[in-house]
């Protein structure tokens, strides 16, 4: 790379790379995809970052244009060869602009271990809403409750009306499926699945993995893999579309 490219083109590449990230973050904020990636508590932080990045780019553009007349000023030799860092940044931002992220699938849930249903929530039940009538509790409310009062028989006969996506853990009998939600505390990186088994009258294969269901029924206790396990006996199952915000908090 000759001196000319280094001193004139690379600074512009830097600006372009940072600007592309500002635009990407703004885009996620505007089209609501931010919720797929991070906890809502940090939306403002990301939006602010996007604005600051664009401001920095604006200032730097002014600076570069002002400086164009003066001869070579600063070139960078850094950890990566010149131009590589900005190319990595730019390329990743373009990837993000072209491809839309999707919510995790059941594959991640199985990878992270949805199987041990009860021992699974890490989050303390900060908003513990036991006063809610059973049919208004979400899947996550149920699992949190179960963490505090683990005796499944306590809940027998209570009405259930929950939404979630389907996982087929290999160790479940064929007439059961796992209805799950991902819970996040910071970003999708710490998404962990919580779920309850659902007992069907037919084979669970009728409901493919990752499809979203609304399940109504009542609580029973099943013996699964030698463990007594709170289970939903389904009375009606409805296919639903993926909710706008698929995570729970």
């Amino acid at each position: 790379m000759n001196l000319r490219t280094q001193t004139f083109l690379l600074p512009w590449l830097d600006v372009l790379a940072i600007a592309s990230w500002g635009i990407l973050l703004l885009k996620y904020w505007l089209n609501g995809k931010l919720g797929l990636l991070i906890h809502p508590d940090y939306f403002w932080l990301v939006t602010l970052t996007a604005l600051v990045m664009l401001t920095i780019c604006g200032l730097q553009v002014r600076e570069l244009r002002r400086r164009r007349s003066c001869a070579s000023r600063v070139a960078h030799l850094t950890l990566f060869p010149p131009g590589l860092s900005s190319s990595i940044l730019l390329l990743t931002a373009l990837l993000g602009l072209v491809f839309t992220p999707h919510i995790f699938t059941s594959q991640i849930a199985l990878q992270r271990g949805v199987t041990d249903t009860v021992a699974m929530t890490r989050a303390q039940p900060q908003a513990f809403r036991s006063s809610r009538p059973p049919e208004e509790r979400t899947l996550v409310d149920w699992v949190r409750m179960l963490n505090v009062y683990p005796e499944p028989d306590e809940y027998t006969g209570q009405k259930v009306n929950v939404q979630g996506f389907v996982i087929h853990p290999p160790e479940l009998p064929p007439n059961l499926l796992m209805l799950s939600r991902f819970v996040i505390t910071c970003c999708a990186a710490d998404a962990y699945p919580v779920g309850l088994p659902v007992k069907l009258d037919q084979t669970s294969k009728a409901y493919p993995s990752d499809s979203w269901l609304e399940v109504q029924g009542q609580m029973i206790t099943e013996n699964l893999a030698g463990k007594r396990q709170l289970t939903i006996q389904a009375s009606s199952i409805r296919q639903i579309t993926e909710p706008k915000n698929p995570y729970d908090y």
Binding site: I38, V46, L48, T49, F99, P101, F104, T105, C186, A189
Partner: peptide, 21 residues
Amino acid sequence: KLNNAFTLFLSLLVEAMPFLL
């Protein structure tokens, strides 16, 4: 898998970028 990896990758970046800045 690719979809999951991409979502994970982006979420790490989006959450980390503000702190880096």
